[in-house]
Nucleic acid binder design. Sequence first.
DNA 1: CCGTTTTTTGACCAAAAGGTCCAGACAGGC
DNA 2: GCCTGTCTGGACCTTTTGGTCAAAAAACGG
Lengths: 193, 193
Amino acid sequence: MPWEKSFDESDVVEKTMKVFWKKGYAATSISDILDVTGIKRGSLYNAFDGKEDLFMRGLLKYDAEQRRSMMRELESVDDPRKAISMFFDYIVRSSNSDCDQKGCFLVNTSLEFSQHSEAVQKVVTDAFKEISAFFEKQIKRGQERGSIPDTISPRETAKALVASLVGIRVMGRGTFGKAALQQIADQAKRLIA
Amino acid sequence: MPWEKSFDESDVVEKTMKVFWKKGYAATSISDILDVTGIKRGSLYNAFDGKEDLFMRGLLKYDAEQRRSMMRELESVDDPRKAISMFFDYIVRSSNSDCDQKGCFLVNTSLEFSQHSEAVQKVVTDAFKEISAFFEKQIKRGQERGSIPDTISPRETAKALVASLVGIRVMGRGTFGKAALQQIADQAKRLIA
DNA sequence: CCGTTTTTTGACCAAAAGGTCCAGACAGGC
DNA sequence: GCCTGTCTGGACCTTTTGGTCAAAAAACGG
């Protein structure tokens, strides 16, 4: 075994992810990536397959470290209303604390569908399906224990909550002010009130 | 006066708009535009300033012909609940009838903010502000005539409705199926029920 | 300390990007 | 029918794009 890489591969993916996240796929050039990682061209292509590969890795990393990890924490919340509420608060908080206003990488990517492979599309759609399923499950749990009214439809309300979430993420990129995002979240919660 | 243009300028803007709408700014090349309009390079740069200019014109055309014209029609609806309801149904219908799944040009553009001039950003944010103001006005009217409960906050509910609308537009690009969009819209209407 | 094996480096490539330019085509006014 | 002004076509330009390559450098086993 003759040599180890001089750079941390996952660090490169992390930095690359942030560029794609902020600027989108098409608007990000390889040069941008070289600049932000400090790595050289040859090293990049020695370690990765190319732009698409880099994007995919970044997206998977985001999905695992941001969305999945947050949802895993919320799974352990006992009170279903609180679990849903915490989800929204988390989104609002992370939207408001990001001074780059990058929004959500998954949402951003879903509006770039036409430029991406089906593999990428699947990551995104699966993510939204899981979020929707999460909401649905929590609503059902709430109905079982009487904290959420039986009159509402779990599946359809879940989808509406996802849409609100997406809306918050989009408006958080600069269209509405910070205060508005929390207000929207609070209103969305009325759907399960 | 020696010669008229051989192409219809507004027709070129229309076709150009559709490409930007579908693929986004960065992913659309001048060659794409030449292909879709059938016009030649020299003619394009003789009639327009360049890519940015073309994009701006397309965006303004969309805003005027899609959003503004629809809102103008809704202004004349007497029943405020119905006006809001029709807005959502219109969005759902136009999302579902577009086989290209382009979504909403304004929403798409709002996720490309970093690549655009402030002038472009202003068009988008103004559009959303107007939609929000429309909802707010309708909610207030509904409360005055007793068809919408006094307990809800007009301004904040309006913002939540905008977020739902945006969510529908995003999910309509392929993440959720057609049926889901109408379901989301129906749930959103519960915010003013 | 020498070969082996991998990484690094930066030059290099073809293609595509956005944009310019001008020779020629064209329709008016005279 | 010619002159004038604009419009068209496409060659052309520079820069940037994503990607390749070969030579040099660096750690390890022997």
